[in-house]
């Protein structure tokens, strides 16, 4: 994992520094040649790229120094910029995941128990729609109707709000982000549970006198939740990339807007830091999946030990 991270950092750094037309400050008419020289020297831009890379890595590893923003927030350390933006994005993503999990599990269970009834068909239909239609379409719809037409929610994010007001102004983006994860969890759980219901231990549970619903709730779900970890945790990465657009639509000052504006500015130290942040999150997710397997289902851990 560390090797992968190192490769990503290296490739990211090289790509960003070797970009065609990357002559920073060179064409600024307001500065004299001497000033440009000083600035370029300050950010080590006058040195060869490998040397810049070593300087960057040394600063990052030894002092936790991510560099300094050079055009978007001039002079502000990159880490300070990120520190302000990450919580906003994370709040959205985590709340969205918190909403989608119980709702998805609930509707998946209902669809599985009432299999081949009108409830099941309606759920399947909704699932197809929510999985197919992109999250930014939902965001646009919600923004137009719920916020603009019916005036239930603020149209864009209200940065001054706190507590319940913050949730209120973030509810629409969170909703738009949640539709697709809910549908995914529902579809997965329905398929899993439909298979589990036909297994022998479920027959036994019903034989000893439990009703179908009781048997499903007490014995069926637990077995279906194990493979769900495999779907849910990568979903976090999915939600995160979806929130890039959603943040833009609702003017939320999060990572998404920052990434785009840092690319367009261009502000290379910032872009690099954001890319590293996204890589880090997705690598951690993969790690969590691997670890979660052992915790949720001990059979996997024991099985692994035996093979060794």
């Amino acid at each position: 994992m560390l090797i992968t991270l190192f490769i990503i950092v290296t490739i990211g750094f090289m790509v960003i520094r070797l970009m065609p037309g990357n002559t920073m400050y060179a064409d600024d008419p307001d500065m004299s040649a001497a000033q440009i020289e000083v600035l370029r020297a300050k950010y080590h831009l006058d040195k060869p790229v490998p040397v810049q890379y070593v300087i960057f890595l040394r600063g990052l590893l030894l002092e936790g120094d991510w560099g300094t923003s050079i055009s978007l927030y001039v002079g502000v350390p990159v880490w300070d910029v990120l520190k302000a933006k990450i919580p906003v994005s994370m709040y959205n993503n985590i709340v969205s995941l918190m909403i989608s999990l119980p709702l998805g599990i609930l509707s998946g269970v209902i669809a599985a128990i009432r299999k081949n009834t009108i409830v099941d068909y309606a759920t399947s239909f909704a699932v197809v729609i929510f999985i197919s239609v992109p999250s930014f379409i939902f965001a646009t719809l919600l923004q137009y109707f719920a916020a603009f037409k019916w005036r239930l929610f603020p149209i864009i994010y209200d940065a001054s709000a706190t507590g319940a007001g913050k949730l209120h102004s973030l509810l629409l983006p969170i909703l738009a982000l949640s539709f697709s994860p809910i549908a995914r969890v529902t579809r997965y759980l329905r398929a899993e549970l439909a298979e589990t219901i036909n297994s022998d231990f479920m027959l036994l549970a019903r034989t000893k006198g439990l009703t179908e619903t009781q048997a499903t709730l007490r014995h069926g779900i637990r077995n279906s939740l194990v493979p769900l970890a495999n779907v849910v945790i990568p979903m976090f990465t999915h939600i995160m990339s979806g929130s890039l657009v959603i943040e833009r639509i609702f003017s939320i000052p999060g990572m998404g807007g920052l990434m785009v504006s840092s690319i367009n500015a261009p502000d290379y130290p910032l872009t690099l830091a954001i890319l590293i942040f996204y890589s880090l999150v997705s690598l951690v997710t993969v790690l969590v999946v691997d670890l979660a397997y052992g915790v949720i289902d001990p059979r996997i851990r024991i099985g692994g030990r035996n093979i060794e």
Binding site: M1, T4, I8, I11, G12, V15, I16, L18, M19, T237, M240, S241, L244, M259, I263, T271, L275, Y278, S279, V281, S282, L283, V286
Partner: peptide, 15 residues
């Protein structure tokens, strides 16, 4: 595959 899609696509289009 370990690299996040957003990052790969962004770098690719940047370059």
């Amino acid at each position: 595959n370990a690299m996040p899609t957003v990052v790969v696509v962004t770098l690719f289009i940047l370059y």
